[in-house]
């Protein structure tokens, strides 16, 4: 069975809302110290930051399926992660943004993401390849 996880440790909690760093205009510090706004981040920023960090490794996580959750306004996304294509399930709010390689921020409900975070998003779809992280030491 696939591993069930959450992007930020605990199960999604709709009442708590999304993390503040996804709000448009949030200042993000890259591994080399450069500051960028969240909406200006590019694929290369993540890739280069992971290379600089030494401890983290970028994985390609392909969206295998997107299903409704019992939790209101949430979905369960199944990813195929890394070279081993490990199956990982994540329960997130529909507006939760993922960064898709070569495309940028994407969510299951882009309109809601834009409404809540002012962050422009594309529609996250099956087959999209998202950026995810693992610790190199886990390998």
């Amino acid at each position: 069975p696939p591993t069930s996880t959450s992007p930020h440790g605990s199960p999604s909690s709709p009442s708590a809302g999304l993390p503040p760093f996804f709000m448009k205009g949030s200042i993000i510090q890259l591994a080399d110290g450069e500051l960028k706004r969240v909406e200006d981040l590019r694929t290369e920023d993540f890739v280069q930051s992971a290379e600089v960090s030494g401890e983290l490794k970028i994985d390609s996580s392909t969206v295998e399926s997107i299903e409704c959750s019992r939790t209101p306004n949430a979905v369960i996304i199944q990813f195929s992660v890394g070279e081993n294509k490990a199956q990982v399930c994540v329960e997130v709010l529909v507006e939760y943004p993922f960064f898709v390689f070569g495309q940028g921020w994407s969510s299951c409900c882009p309109d809601r993401t834009t409404q809540l975070l002012a962050l422009s998003c594309a529609k996250l779809s099956v087959g999209d390849v998202c950026i995810s992280l693992t610790f190199k030491s886990l390998k």
């Binding site: 591993t3 996880t5 503040p20 760093f21 993000i28 510090q29 890259l30 981040l41 920023d45 930051s49």
Partner: peptide, 25 residues
């Protein structure tokens, strides 16, 4: 314009989910 003393700065890895598969061996 950004006011440096009041604007939080977040690390880049906060934005990316850690999707660590369970090791099968």
């Amino acid at each position: 314009n950004v006011e440096p003393r009041s604007v939080p700065v977040f690390p880049w890895h906060s934005l990316v989910p850690f999707l660590a598969p369970t090791q099968s061996d």
